[in-house]
C-alpha cells in the first residue's frame, strides 16, 4: 500500500486567546475488515488508523479513537484555543503499529 501521507492545515498566525480551526487528513485505505476479496471471496483483514492525537507544546489538546465506520482517508476537523506561540504535533497510529506524524508551528501575537 502507498505510504500514508498526512496533510494538516493550521493558521500561521493568531491573536492570543483565539479559537482556531485545524483541519487534518491522512491518506489511508481504512480497510474495515468486512469487505471480501472479489476473486477469492475471503475477508480482507481489518487495517485502519485507530488513534489520532494532537499535542500543543507537549500537552494533549485533542484525541480521537477511530473505528471502521470512519471513511477512507480519515478527515478530522476540530478547534483549539491558543494562548502562546508553539508547535502542534499530530500523530496517527495504524492497526499494524506504524505511526505517522507531522508538526506545524503557529505564531501567537
Amino acid at each position: 500500500m502507498a505510504k500514508s501521507k498526512p496533510r494538516v492545515k493550521v493558521p500561521k498566525k493568531a491573536a492570543k486567546g483565539d479559537i482556531i480551526t485545524i483541519k487534518t487528513l491522512i491518506s489511508h485505505k481504512m480497510e474495515s475488515g468486512r469487505r471480501k476479496d472479489k476473486k477469492t471471496g475471503e475477508l480482507i483483514p481489518r487495517r485502519i488508523i485507530n488513534h489520532f492525537k494532537v499535542e500543543f507544546n507537549g500537552a494533549e489538546v485533542f484525541s480521537a479513537n477511530l473505528e471502521p465506520s470512519v471513511s477512507a482517508n480519515p478527515y478530522v476537523q476540530f478547534k483549539a484555543k491558543v494562548t502562546e506561540s508553539g508547535t502542534f504535533k499530530f500523530t496517527w497510529t495504524d492497526d499494524d503499529g506504524s505511526v505517522y506524524s507531522t508538526e506545524k508551528k503557529i505564531a501567537v501575537e
Binding site: I19, F62, P68, V70, S71, Y75, V76, K79, A80, K81
Partner: peptide, 12 residues
C-alpha cells in the same frame, strides 16, 4: 485547551 468542543469528520 480545545476552546470549543466541535469537530467534523467523514463516515461510512
Amino acid at each position: 485547551m480545545s476552546g470549543e468542543a466541535s469537530a467534523s469528520t467523514r463516515i461510512r
